[in-house]
């Protein structure tokens, strides 16, 4: 019992809530009320509406409602709230269109691939009746291509989240130091720090050659299909769509890395996808090409990169008179 008193159980408890939770049809989604990187300048709070940032108010006549879909780059992983692409887009648009009521929802979710984005469009976003849907993704469609045998629904890669460790009965005993310490020792709380533990299938270790083989045998087809379906659903709900080609930093992992090669393949499919489904394609590579310090790593943006992307999106929306 003396040993239990020495354990930092308070800190263990604080670290516990995972930023995502299981969902029967989306695979997983952001956990309402969760906080990531708490107490740091880049603290991320998930609202009661299940997304980062403020919820969008009820739709007003003549207003402009924009929903930004995507992965951790759109979500703004390791960025302060004001530095994310949707927050900057909202601020810039409000300056440019002072007479219109502009609301931008950050619907980016950590680890979402094009498959989860498609499901979110189908079950969540179309209900919001957005005027414009911005899609910026691709980073999480690379890893499923490094695993064989490839399946079009990514079920070879995505885990079935059978049990959430953070349900009501689990919280019931958190007053007990012994309970918290036991969960820490059997690995529940440390696992909670790693989203992969829940969202990705336990994969056997594979060599770089095996991954290269899997990558070469797979193609960008499923990514293109998922994006086509997402754009088609957005159009069916009455929204205009901006399908963005994600930019990558070729210097971080080298020009022949899987991420860079996959993104190059994705970029080629997007004008065709947007054209076929009635969306607008926007390549952000050129906008970020001359910008120093735009990337934190190969795909994630710094505040500078997010500002450039938001400015380019704003320019396109204003130019088209949306």
């Amino acid at each position: 019992m003396e040993l239990l008193r020495l354990l930092p159980t308070k800190e263990l408890r604080i670290a516990a809530p995972l930023a995502v939770r299981p969902h029967p049809f989306l695979g997983f989604c952001l956990r309402e009320g969760a906080t990531r990187q708490a107490g740091t300048p880049v603290e991320q709070r998930i609202g009661a509406h299940g997304y980062r940032g403020a919820p969008i108010p009820p739709k007003s006549t003549g207003g402009l409602r924009i929903v930004c879909l995507g992965d951790s780059t759109m979500y703004g992983d390791s960025l302060a709230e004001k530095d994310t692409i949707p927050a900057k887009l909202e601020a810039t648009l409000r300056e440019r269109l002072p007479r219109r009521k502009v609301d931008v929802l950050n619907a980016g979710v950590l680890q979402y691939s094009s498959a989860e984005t498609f499901a979110a469009m189908a079950l969540r976003i179309s209900d919001l009746r957005p005027d414009v849907v911005v899609i910026y993704e691709g980073g999480n469609d690379v890893a499923p291509r490094l695993v064989r045998p490839f399946r079009s629904d990514y079920a070879h890669y995505r885990a079935v989240w059978e049990r959430d460790y953070d349900e009501g009965p689990d919280r019931l005993f958190e007053w007990s130091s012994f309970f918290v310490a036991s969960r820490w020792l059997i690995g529940i709380y440390p696992a909670a720090q790693r989203m992969d533990w829940y969202t990705v299938n336990p994969l056997p270790p594979s060599t770089a050659n095996e991954k290269e083989f899997a990558f070469v045998r797979s193609s960008e087809t499923q990514f293109a299909r998922n994006q086509a379906a997402t754009v088609a659903l957005a159009r069916a709900s009455g929204a205009r769509t901006l399908l963005c080609s994600p930019a990558v930093d070729r210097t971080k992992e080298g020009p022949y890395s899987w991420a860079v090669r996959a993104m190059d393949q994705f970029r080629k499919t997007q004008p065709i996808t947007a054209g076929a489904q009635g969306g607008i394609h926007l390549d952000l590579t050129e906008a970020l090409a001359g910008e120093k310090d735009a990337f934190r790593d190969t795909v994630h943006l710094t505040p500078v990169g997010a500002r450039v992307v938001a400015a380019r999106l704003c320019e396109e929306i204003v130019k088209r008179g949306w």
Binding site: P24, D127, E162
Partner: peptide, 10 residues
């Protein structure tokens, strides 16, 4: 509305 009330299987 996002059908989050449906129990996950098993």
């Amino acid at each position: 509305s996002d059908l989050g009330h449906v129990p996950r299987p098993w």
